[in-house]
Design a protein around this nucleic acid. Sequence first.
DNA 1: GACCGACATGACAATCGTTGTCAACTGGGT
DNA 2: ACCCAGTTGACAACGATTGTCATGTCGGTC
Lengths: 135, 135
Amino acid sequence: MTTTDEALRTAGLRATRQRLSVLESLRERPDAVTAQDLHAELRGAGEPIGLTTVYRTLTALAGAGFLDTFDRDGEQAFRRCGEVHHHHLVCETCNRVEELSGDDVERWVSQAATRHGFEVTGHRADIFGICAACR
Amino acid sequence: MTTTDEALRTAGLRATRQRLSVLESLRERPDAVTAQDLHAELRGAGEPIGLTTVYRTLTALAGAGFLDTFDRDGEQAFRRCGEVHHHHLVCETCNRVEELSGDDVERWVSQAATRHGFEVTGHRADIFGICAACR
DNA sequence: GACCGACATGACAATCGTTGTCAACTGGGT
DNA sequence: ACCCAGTTGACAACGATTGTCATGTCGGTC
């Protein structure tokens, strides 16, 4: 797992107080958060940061592959993620996200694409449910 | 494949001129469309219909299971779909959508969920690529 | 350690997809 | 033909996200 500083450097971003605080709150969090929610949380915790900055930081980190994005009723939620390709198991109650590897899925993807003459550019396979703690 | 009238009846909706024209344009179309685009198209084709109505109709039909929804850069796109559960192969260039069945996927879903103690409420597995015609 | 230019920030305005409102309209059963 | 619950659509409102731009700051340099 890369450190917060490394992550920023790799993404070609300066290590500012604001970015570090965003990364820090994402670091140990098992659930996916919205830019708005994260902004409110940081503000509530006494971290002065602008909403625009939160959006920009999350978008940049997601673009650099450090965060995964999820759609929550038309709103974007973010969560830190591993480097290698994976899938998700998302709790619809607490937003906790488990990462899954899925060789079966990869196999299905390439077979289905070949069968239909498509050139694969990407795929997404997520499972939604209620986690043990929320049941 | 249900007729347009049947679809409306099943969804508990009256068969109005506007709804029929929405269903009609969706009927033979292989690609997914946005509410805004469909509205523009219908207007362009001389079909008087309000944007609000297009939104409401698409949302209602999707809710009733007659349409699948896709996220296109934060915008919702719709496409007619079969009744039974399936997955998608989406062309990122022309938005053509192929329906896929995926028993392998279903198996993976229940196994992964069980392993993590989740109760499955749903899942989604879509493949993105470039179709043969667009290559 | 002060200096400086490029990068970053944030308050605010603007954008844009989508939904709410409500008076006027209409499908379809009586 | 009649009636009314369901529909429509112009318009306003909403809310997430992005653009703007003057001000602030990181971090390499001298």
